[in-house]
Amino acid sequence: MSYAVHRSSGRRQFLQLIDGWTGNPAYVENRFTDVLAANALATALSPSYCAGVNLVRALLLDESTRELFRDWEELTEALIASLRANVGPDVDDPRLSYGCGWPATVRRAPAAVRQGDE
């Protein structure tokens, strides 16, 4: 199992729960699409499902991740739309800043996704 550094007892119990789902891939992400935890099956499907990986960045920047999805453009549009909805008014959050590479990341997105950022 892969999980983030902060481990409260409640979080540990939650991680034990998803790790017990050996027949189903499971991962937990925050509103910025950072993977917080993933069970072994999720990580086996893609190394992107590993604590600390940002799913939007992985989908846009990692060629091997893109190759996993036949419908890459549609998935990317949906994932970025979800990110925008989840972030809401917190668009100035440092995790979405130039220093974190978001503008460069979004430039690699399909044209339909970039339209909202130009």
Rank of each mutant, 00 (worst) to 15 (best):
V28L: 09
V28G: 03
N39W: 06
D34C: 12
F14M: 12
L17D: 04
A37H: 02
A51K: 03
T43M: 06
L41W: 08
T33M: 12
A44W: 11
N39Q: 11
F32K: 02
S48Q: 10
G52L: 07
G52R: 02
S46R: 04
P47S: 11
R57K: 14
A42Q: 08
L59Q: 07
D62C: 11
R57P: 01
S48D: 09
T65R: 06
N54V: 05
A37C: 07
T22P: 13
R12F: 05
E29S: 12
T65D: 08
L60M: 04
T33I: 13
N39I: 09
V28R: 03
R66E: 03
R12W: 04
I18R: 04
A26S: 14
E63G: 10
L36R: 10
L41E: 13
G23A: 14
A37P: 01
N24G: 12
F69H: 01
V28H: 06
E29C: 10
L36Y: 06
Q16M: 13
R66D: 05
G52P: 01
L45R: 12
L36G: 07
Q13D: 13
L68H: 02
D62M: 12
A58R: 02
N30T: 12
E63T: 13
A38I: 09
P25L: 11
D19P: 09
C50W: 06
W21R: 14
Y27E: 09
G20T: 06
T33W: 10
Q13N: 09
N24R: 14
